[in-house]
Design a protein around this nucleic acid. Structure first.
Length: 570
RNA sequence: GGGGGCGUAGUUCAGCCCGGUUAGAACGCUGGCCUGUCACGCCAGAGGUCGCGAGUUCAAAUCUCGUCGCCCCCGCCA
């Protein structure tokens, strides 16, 4: 981009500028001082170009002699065709003979090299995030996110969606995650909550007749963190009026088709496959199965129960994960340790190559097995065995590096239970959130366990990247659902009255979805941690290492808020 | 809240089990040599509160306890 300082980006210098004089700005990448002449690479966002100066040009030479990596400079020079071309770099055909140079700003000694291929603790990277973000790899991640967002905007705008903002200072609603609270100065003793999601606002926008809404909304949840969980994260929040599941599915599939097309020039297989929650659980042991492999869980309970196999004694279910790759005994041992770490008893196996082998081979007939496959067995209470095999399945995908059917495998999970029983609190909790429309509301009173919520999750490569539902637009039914969750009429009025009131003014049928932007980008890039696609993330304990947040505040600030700090032990 | 791993030069690591010379290496940094390098090369050098605190010991980077920070996992995340 031409500015008063420069003509083009360093990475844009090419054959067509040979013989032309250019002004460039950027940072020093590497210096190669040969004594009689000095080479250095000048870099910016778009790439880098080799520059050189000979000793004869004393004025420039004397400056260049002292430059170091990451110094910020301006140069003027002539583009030359190289004698020894470097095919490994974009600008490798040409180089610049420097006529003039100006040092804008020097760089202090670096804590690490600003290059892609570094081996540095994340702690150090976060402390010097401004350098970490300078690495091409990190820039690519952030820029891909930018392009993704622009395509989404373009796609949804064309479909008639309106981008609407919603408040960050909001009302604390119980349930779900812990809220981040913000004390109010004007109302001492009262607190705003940062929104866990714009759920209620977007439903209210439907009541207001906007018909189709979206927003890249920052969401806040004060829970313990993981590599795929930050205290603040971005959701692509979408809501539509007068729709059913099919409308949402189609809209999202078209959106991803567009994204893959424009971002990767790839065609997606649409529509995405669908699984009900119970099928997914029973087949894959997970409500977010990675379908890049087709390994399934098989039930061997009837075949192997009470056959005198010691390790299966007294177990309710004997289940097996059928995989189509070979496995070494050493890796089985590793899986065995893993299963124990997940609270299971252990894992054993049968391998069917030319004949049967493995600890279970003498108890089972080849008639029930498929040649070439390995069967990993876990026995336990049924629910637990399924859970463990689900975890084992994920572990095997990482450990055994199977050939994948495709790079990206989407799947819709549908028909979730509306309620789950919370054993600790002894009450019914919403499986998704309390505003989901039940498919069979008649069952709420007599058998809450059987009520199906019109909820759906979108899963990509074993990562839950989105979740949504057809919402409840009937205020009376909504009241009934909340009541079943143990709220008194009074509680409901106090906490959700504003929302129920909105529903009672001609709320349309509506539904939508929220997609986790950071998780999607990280999955598309094949990375592990969403911290690598968030410019300024927090650590696992919620600290911002660069600026040092959270931090203590002054007495005056607390006084304004009518707050006092108590000493520990509470 | 619980479990595991890590913390030694600016950075990444070795040394720690089995306590005992001046705590090493690579990259980076400083100085010198070098006109076709592109991870330039060669020579020389500087650089350490061994995370912090206590304990054991004649003696602790090394053993013990506590504590802080980073990473991963379980719980938690409507």
């Amino acid at each position: 981009m031409k500015t008063s300082f420069r003509d083009i980006y360093c990475g844009e210098v090419s054959d067509r500028f040979i013989g032309k004089e250019l002004k460039l700005c950027g940072w020093i990448k590497r210096v190669r001082d040969l004594g009689g002449m000095i080479f250095f690479d000048l870099k910016d966002r778009e790439g880098y170009i080799q520059c050189f100066v000979e000793k004869a040009n004393t004025k420039v030479y004397n400056i260049v002699k002292d430059i170091r990596m990451e110094d910020c400079v301006w140069i003027k020079g002539m583009v030359r065709e190289r004698k020894d071309k470097n095919p490994n770099i974009k600008t490798g055909n040409v180089e610049i003979e420097v006529f003039e140079i100006k040092l804008f700003n020097r760089s202090s000694e670096l804590p690490f090299l600003v290059e892609d291929d570094i081996n540095v603790f994340e702690e150090t990277r976060l402390k010097y995030r401004f350098l970490d973000l300078k690495r091409p790899l990190m820039q690519n991640n952030i820029i891909l996110k930018h392009r993704f967002v622009q395509i989404v905007r373009d796609n949804l705008n064309k479909k008639g969606f309106i981008e609407v903002e919603t408040p960050y200072l909001s009302k604390s609603t119980p349930e779900g995650a812990r809220d981040f609270l913000v004390p109010s100065r004007l109302a001492p003793g009262k607190f705003y909550a940062l929104p866990q999601s714009p759920q209620l606002y977007k439903q209210i926008l439907m009541v207001s007749g906007f018909d189709r809404y979206y927003q890249f909304a920052r969401c806040f949840r004060d829970e313990d963190l993981r590599k795929d969980r930050q205290p603040e994260f971005t959701q692509l929040d979408i809501e539509m009026s007068f729709v059913e599941e099919e409308d949402v599915f189609q809209m999202i599939e078209e959106l991803f088709e567009d994204i893959f097309n424009r971002l990767f020039m790839k065609t997606l297989n649409c529509p995405f496959p669908r699984l009900t929650y119970f099928t997914s659980l029973n087949k894959y042991g997970s409500d977010k199965p990675d379908l890049r492999v087709n390994w399934e869980i098989k039930d061997f309970t009837n075949l192997l129960k009470d056959k005198g196999i010691k390790i299966f004694e007294g177990c309710e279910a004997i289940l097996s994960l059928e995989i189509d790759v070979d496995i070494t005994r050493k890796k089985v041992e590793e899986l065995n340790e893993f299963v124990k770490s997940q609270g299971g008893k252990g894992v054993t196996y049968v391998k069917y190559t030319d004949s049967l082998s493995g600890p279970l081979s003498r108890f089972i007939s080849a008639d029930y097995l498929k040649k070439g496959n390995v069967y990993l067995f876990v026995a336990d209470k049924k629910e637990k065995a399924i859970f463990i095999l689900g975890r084992l399945r994920e572990k095997c995908i990482k450990l055994l590096e199977p050939e994948l059917k495709e790079d990206f495998s989407f799947v819709w999970i549908t028909e979730f239970p509306l309620y789950v029983w919370d054993e600790e609190e002894k009450r019914w909790e919403p499986a998704h959130h309390p505003f989901t429309m039940p498919r069979n509301p008649g069952d709420i009173d007599k058998s809450p366990r059987e009520v199906i919520g019109r909820q759906y999750d979108l899963v990509l490569n074993g990562v839950e990247i989105g979740s949504g539902s057809i919402r409840n637009h009937d205020p009376e039914l909504q009241r009934k659902i909340l009541k079943k969750m143990g709220y008194s009429d009074e509680d409901i009025e106090k906490r959700f009255g504003f929302f129920l009131s909105a529903l009672s003014y001609g709320a349309p049928p509506h539904g939508g979805i929220a997609l986790g932007l950071d998780r999607i980008i990280v999955t598309l890039l094949g990375l592990g941690s969403i911290r690598d696609v968030i410019p300024f993330p927090k650590t696992a304990k919620g600290y911002a290492l660069f600026e040092g947040a959270p931090s203590e505040v002054g007495k005056e600030q607390l006084k304004d808020l009518k707050l006092e700090l108590k000493n520990e032990n509470d």
